[in-house]
Amino acid sequence: MIIDLPSTTTSNVNKKLVELRESGGAVALGRVLTLVIVTGDGSEVEEAVQAANDASREHPCRVIVVASGARQAAPRLDAQIRIGGDAGASEVVVLRLYGPLADEGAGAVVPLLLPDAPVVSYWPGQAPDVPAKDPIGALSHRRITDAAAEPNPIAALHKRVRSYTAGDTDLAWTRLTSWRAMLSSALDLPPHENVTAAALKGAPDSPSTDLLAAWLAVYLDIPVTREDHPRQGSGLYSAVLERPSGNIEIVRPDGKVGSLTQPGQPDRRIALQRREVRDCLSEELRRLDPDEIYHITLGGLDKIERATDRPDDEADEEAAAEAGKGQS
């Protein structure tokens, strides 16, 4: 069910929520948190709501979407309430703020927060320079950003280093859970030797590749080289851990299935499907305490050695492809 409330107030939205609860039997006390999504007034809204709806099946919550409209318009608040099949296991309130109200998202959110429930804020697109100092971020126990969705993902990631406050996290880090688990389990198998160095390859715009390299550099205390894969948007391509008896190597060429190679073990194909936003969001909503490992990993970004030169055969292949385009 979707109820539109054009040119309304937060007081009227609250009254309507109570009315719907009394008539439909929805129990607000069953919600475990309030998830505030801050976005523009475009297609991002529906994508973010869908991800939140899917995550809410594991974490029933009230979802408040703050969508900023045209700042040149007259001050106006349009609201939309979604419950039932249109809201997963949550209740969704979409607030569209226009004119001077576009900068007053926190003031519109406060009256709609669930009492005595944690608040999590999420920016599916461009995030504030310092999320914890943003008015909505200041209300939140946890703040979730996504460097991969920013115009310049690598610059956004380094901005996270400077702005980090306990409670911050980024979905570029959450997408690495499967990679970190695979590498850790591989090191648990014999031969139990120290890793001497590591090399990672990923798209030049992949913040997850940088974070995995930093994680290895910090926790294994080894030199780590980060090489660019020529294809933008291809994410993390491979990770190699060097050991005296032979390397541990994970390669994921298609973004779906990877291969794991290590000494004394048969080669294995492993599931490394790129994680959907809903899965990453659901994982982050499982915890409300600071992610200390993420914080420490951010501090290791300056330990990465960047390999700027690509192998000659790879460069030759790309040059030949470009020449073929020019002839066609």
Rank of each mutant, 00 (worst) to 15 (best):
D4R: 14
S7R: 08
T8R: 04
T9V: 04
T9Q: 06
N12R: 14
V13R: 04
N14K: 11
E19P: 01
R21W: 01
A26E: 10
G30N: 10
L35K: 02
L35F: 03
S43E: 12
E44C: 08
Q50S: 09
A52S: 07
D54S: 09
H59W: 13
I64V: 12
V65D: 00
A74Y: 11
R76Q: 14
G84R: 09
G85C: 04
A89E: 13
V93M: 06
G99L: 01
G107L: 10
V109S: 01
L112T: 04
Y122S: 01
T145H: 08
I154Y: 03
L157H: 02
L157I: 07
Y164E: 01
T169Y: 02
T169R: 02
W173S: 03
A186H: 12
D188V: 08
L189P: 08
L200A: 10
P207V: 05
S208V: 04
L216V: 04
A217W: 00
L220W: 04
L220T: 03
V224K: 00
R226A: 05
E227T: 12
S238P: 11
G246R: 14
I250V: 13
P253M: 13
D254Q: 13
K256P: 03
Q262K: 14
G264L: 10
Q265L: 11
R269C: 03
I270K: 07
L281W: 05
R286E: 13
H295F: 06
T297D: 06
L298K: 02
L298H: 00
E305W: 10
E305I: 06
A323G: 08
G324Q: 11
G326P: 02
